[in-house]
Structure formats: structure tokens, C-alpha cells
Amino acid sequence: MNSPIENPSRHGYEIHHDTCFGCGKENPLGLVADFTFHDETGEVNFTYNFKKLYNGAPGFVHGGILSTMLDEAMGGLCFHLGYIVMTDTMSFKFHKATPVETELLIRAWPIKKAKRKVLLECELTSLNGEILYVKGEGAFHILPPRFFSEKLTGGKIAIANELLSVNKLKRAHLFDRIET
């Protein structure tokens, strides 16, 4: 492959548009989360501090915001693995009310790649992992390349296409560690 891009993505904003609700740096109402990929573990793993703006009950994060963050983390992981996806199904178990204005750990990892789907799990915990707030799973439908358009990438289509190819090529081995 003669691509000027040699290294796979590490951050969600490398592929998504700048106004994305999950990772966009120019969305003043968005989550502005990093969705950092770690090659050592094969997962998205990053810390996040939910703003008071995302309150449900006073002092605790709204469940819809938590669901959105975990959906974005799993979807971001799919991009880092080289796939353009759309959420198919998700489910979450809310173990404990999640506090706002507290540094937390968000993780998402692959479970299985089926013919046209990627299955993943995710969790939101305290930084040390001792308190589990939310655990979830999702199935993501792999979209054919024709769906990958300017609307999905916000003007980054050439770079994103190359980056996705590099991601898939350099991270394909991650599915060898799991059931396929």
C-alpha cells in the first residue's frame, strides 16, 4: 500500500468531523471525548469528567448521556479497527449512579467480528476500576464503502479512507485473540 499514512489512528477526532457530538472539538454542547485507542490492549480506553451540564438527578450523570458516551466509545473503537459502522443494538446495565465532576475511566473492547457486524463490550468505572457504574454491549452493522461520504467525515474523506485501511491492516490481528 503506497499511502502517506503509515500509523493507525489513536484518537476519534482523526476520522470524525469537527462538530461530532461525541468527539468534535468544535461542538460547544458536545462531549468532546477523546476515544483513545491503545494498541497494547486492543481497546478504546480514556478518562473523562462529565460536566455538571450533563446532570440527570442533581450531582449524577443523565442515563441518556451515559448511553451516548458508551455508544460513541464502541463506535469509535470500530473506526480504530478499520470499519465504518452504524449502531445496530445496544444494552446497558446501570450498576450505580454515576457522579458528575469526577474523573472516570471509559473502556470499550471487541468481542467478535461476524460477517457484517462487530460485537463489542464497554464499561464505565472509577479510575482504579473498583467501582463499576455502567456495563454494556453493542452490535454494530458494518457499512459498505459507498456509505462513507463527506457527510460522515466532514471533509476528511481522503485521509479517513486511508486511515481506515491502515487501521484494518495493522489491527486485523486483534480479532485473532478473540472468537470470530
Rank of each mutant, 00 (worst) to 15 (best):
F147K: 00
L174P: 06
L132D: 06
T153L: 06
M86E: 11
E179N: 15
H11I: 15
K112R: 15
I157E: 15
L163H: 05
F140I: 12
Y83T: 14
E6C: 10
E137K: 14
E26K: 14
I5H: 04
E40V: 11
N167W: 08
D176G: 00
E6Q: 15
E40F: 04
L127Y: 04
L53R: 11
V118D: 02
T68Q: 04
S67L: 00
D71K: 04
M69C: 12
L120K: 09
T125D: 01
F140R: 03
C122T: 12
R171S: 02
F37V: 09
V32L: 13
L66S: 13
E43D: 02
D18G: 09
E14M: 10
A114I: 02
G22P: 09
S67Y: 04
M1V: 09
E72D: 12
C122H: 05
S126Y: 03
R10N: 11
T36V: 14
Y48V: 10
P145T: 11
T180Y: 13
L70G: 11
R10V: 14
L77G: 07
V100H: 06
P144L: 10
S149G: 05
E43W: 02
N49P: 00
Y83I: 11
N161R: 15
G22T: 06
E150Y: 05
L132H: 15
L104T: 10
A139T: 10
G155K: 04
A158E: 13
Y13T: 00
L31D: 02
F21N: 09
D18Y: 12
F148W: 09
A33K: 05
V166R: 09
N27Y: 04
H17T: 05
P110E: 06
S165T: 08
L77A: 04
E103S: 12
T87Q: 07
L127F: 10
V118P: 02
E14K: 11
V44K: 04
L143N: 08
E137I: 01
I111R: 06
G155N: 09
P110C: 02
E123D: 08
L29H: 14
M69Y: 00
V32Y: 13
N7H: 13
E121L: 06
L105S: 10
P110R: 03
T87P: 05
V32D: 15
E72W: 00
A33E: 13
P110D: 08
S9Y: 12
H80N: 10
L124E: 11
R10Y: 13
H38P: 01
F175N: 05
G155V: 05
N45I: 03
E150D: 15
K112V: 01
S91C: 09
R107W: 00
